[in-house]
Design a protein around this nucleic acid. Structure first.
Length: 365
DNA sequence: TGAATTTGACCCAG
DNA sequence: CTGGGTCAAATTCA
């Protein structure tokens, strides 16, 4: 709701903070993974680092998401808006999308006729859903489809004049919480390694209170392989063209090969439409991010609201959450992309119109 | 066995 | 009428 709008410079700070935090944590994690048992002087576990990274980026994404959604008629991503997408202060979109029609669900198809869709039942679908027309949407192009959110694929279509199919995802909590967020993912024509993701609507669900089992359960020793497998198992993948490996094959979208990652170093992350981001920040690449982070971490790491957006929740009550995409343990293979992404994002992409380096003292606070 | 994905049909906006 | 967004039964997976 409008009362939660934040000022652009505050938003900019928070965005920068989240990115810097993620990058810093990723760096730490890399060190930790390179020398999992060595003396790296780290007192924080890989799981905790992964959690920090995910929290940072989820926070940042949420900032972009919520702010852009609140400013649909401008380039609102950086123009302020609600801080969190955890449902606080965010009213459902004024879209009559599906509405009550979701309730019919299986009932009409239950019973002896469940094997086939009967014509009468299908007729009842008429008028039951309206395609969202005016939803806030924004597009990103990244070498990964991962965004720290929980998505469930509900469709895939061949698109005219497009070499690659488009996959449709909805929030996994659509049924539980009526979250209307959806996204569409499609490989870009000119570079199949890049995925254009169009986000439609914003998350209205609260997914932050689910206990992150991976963090909570510290009884198990750090296991890199399980981390990677966990990621793969927890990651939505798209069977584009049917020649891409699926996640169980170990080379799916969520887990690019190292060779691919090297090539991806040239990739540029872009956020279009809502987030107008230029390359001006390249001049700011000389940031001493550690100093910057040191300035930030005391400020907001202790902020309870940070934890609220933890994406690392697991579905309670399930002994295996292979489908719970909201938990995306930070894998080794992805840390490189993360580094790349963060580098690209920070170095090339961010341009906060009101950004003032004075706001980010590089020395002491 | 429950949850996620696949896939073909349905439906609507343009 | 067509393209594309969504539904939901069937299938797959862990």
């Amino acid at each position: 709701m409008g009362t939660c709008a934040i000022e652009p410079e505050i938003l900019s700070k928070k965005l920068m903070k989240g990115l810097v935090q993620g990058r810093d944590s990723a760096t730490q994690l890399r060190t930790l993974l390179c020398k999992p048992f060595g003396d790296h002087g780290s007192v924080i576990s890989a799981e905790e680092l992964a959690e920090k990274i995910l929290t940072s980026f989820d926070e940042t994404i949420s900032l972009l998401t919520s702010s852009s959604s609140d400013n649909s008629d401008d380039h609102g991503a950086l123009n302020g808006g609600d801080l969190m997408n955890d449902g606080h202060g965010i009213s459902p979109e004024p879209l009559d999308h599906h509405s009550h029609c979701d309730d019919r669900s299986s009932e009409e198809y239950s019973g002896e006729s469940s094997k086939k869709r009967s014509a009468p039942a299908l007729k009842d679908r008429r008028g039951c859903y309206k395609r969202r027309k005016s939803s806030q949407s924004w597009t990103t192009i990244m070498p990964t489809i991962e965004d720290g959110q929980a998505w469930r694929k509900y469709g895939q279509k061949e698109i005219l004049n497009s070499q690659y199919p488009r996959a449709y995802f909805r929030c996994t909590r659509k049924n539980e919480q009526g979250c209307r967020a959806t996204k569409q993912v499609q490989q870009t024509q000119d570079n199949p390694k890049m995925y254009q993701t169009t986000y439609i609507g914003q998350h209205t669900c609260k997914h932050i209170l689910k206990a992150p089992q991976m963090i909570v359960d510290n009884s198990e020793p750090y296991n890199f392989e399980s981390l990677v497998n966990n990621y793969k198992a927890s990651t939505t993948t798209i069977d584009f063209d049917h020649h891409h490996s699926r996640n169980k094959n170990g080379s799916g979208i969520g887990a690019p090969t190292l060779m691919e990652e090297e090539q991806e170093q040239d990739q540029v992350l872009m956020i279009k439409e809502e987030a107008q981001i230029s390359e001006d920040l390249s001049e700011k690449s000389s940031f001493d991010t550690e100093d910057l982070w040191s300035d930030f971490k005391d400020i907001e790491l202790s902020d309870p609201s940070m934890g609220l957006l933890s994406p690392n929740g697991r579905r309670a009550g399930t002994d295996h959450d292979q489908g719970t995409v909201d938990s995306i343990p930070f894998s080794f293979v992805d840390r490189i992309s993360m580094d790349i992404m963060v580098d690209d994002f920070v170095v090339k992409s961010i341009d906060f119109p009101d950004f003032d380096e004075a706001e980010f003292p590089l020395g002491s606070a």
